[in-house]
């Protein structure tokens, strides 16, 4: 099957990544996959306000996902927090938590801001990739870097890294996956559409392979900052 942008079924869109893009942040990163661009900045660990959220046993990871007003195709994205952006903030947070040791930061918060500059499907995955890189760039101890990709089915064909045209197809199944590349564990799994057990297992296997490729890009970008 030929895809609308000429890719093979298991081919990722071209990727680009960079760290240190926000100078005033403790850590920051840009992750670009195809026409989707995510920017993430990390502040902290710092004092947590409002104070009633403070927990003397462990720190809080606070993620914020936002699509910029001009980022979509066509209509202006309304800047207020939506049900969708709150959900994605939450899944981003849950996808990143397994690699962090929040017990080390009592009464504190690590703030992660993910902004989507340009969107062409797979934004939550690009956001997680950027956020993981920004956390590493901030020098926060982590057990692994999280990589994420969306896989899916269109007319019973397994596709890796779904783009907007494929995502908008009425019969498409979209599976967002975040993976810890070293252990192969998953920290995010969201399914939108129909899929049976056999298809899901197959899709996850493919996603794991794709995450390894994304991880290589993330790793290279993190090191690039310190090379001449």
């Amino acid at each position: 099957m030929k895809r609308n942008d000429g890719r093979k079924v298991d081919e990722l869109r071209p990727m680009e990544a960079k760290t240190g893009v926000v100078k005033r942040a403790d850590g920051s990163a840009m992750f670009k996959i195809g026409d989707t661009i995510a920017m993430a900045s990390v502040y902290g660990p710092r004092e947590l306000h409002p104070k009633f959220l403070q927990n003397p046993e462990k720190g809080l990871l606070r993620c914020n996902y936002n699509m910029m007003t001009f980022s979509g195709s066509g209509d202006r994205v309304r800047p207020a927090p939506s049900r969708r952006s709150r959900e994605i903030s939450l899944v981003t947070q849950n996808a990143l938590l397994p690699v962090l040791n929040m017990e080390a930061y009592p009464n504190s918060v690590i703030d992660v801001f993910v902004e989507l500059v340009q969107t062409d499907a797979g934004t939550r995955c690009a956001g997680i990739c950027a956020a993981a890189m920004a956390l590493a760039d901030a020098g926060i101890p982590m057990t692994d870097i999280v990589s994420a990709v969306s896989v899916g089915y269109l007319k019973n064909t397994l596709l890796v890294d779904i783009n907007a045209v494929e995502d908008c197809d009425l019969h498409a199944t979209d599976i967002a996956v975040a993976c810890l590349p070293r252990s192969g564990e998953f920290s995010l799994l969201q399914i939108d559409g129909d899929v049976n057990q056999k298809q899901l297992v197959e899709a996850l296997e493919k996603a794991k392979g794709a995450c390894k490729k994304i991880y290589a890009v993330q790793q290279k970008a993190l090191k690039e900052k310190y090379k001449k």
Binding site: A136, M142, T143, D144, I145, P181, R182, Q219, K227
Partner: peptide, 8 residues
């Protein structure tokens, strides 16, 4: 060597 988190 420059290493990143999770690198063996």
């Amino acid at each position: 060597d420059i290493v990143v988190p999770g690198e063996v």
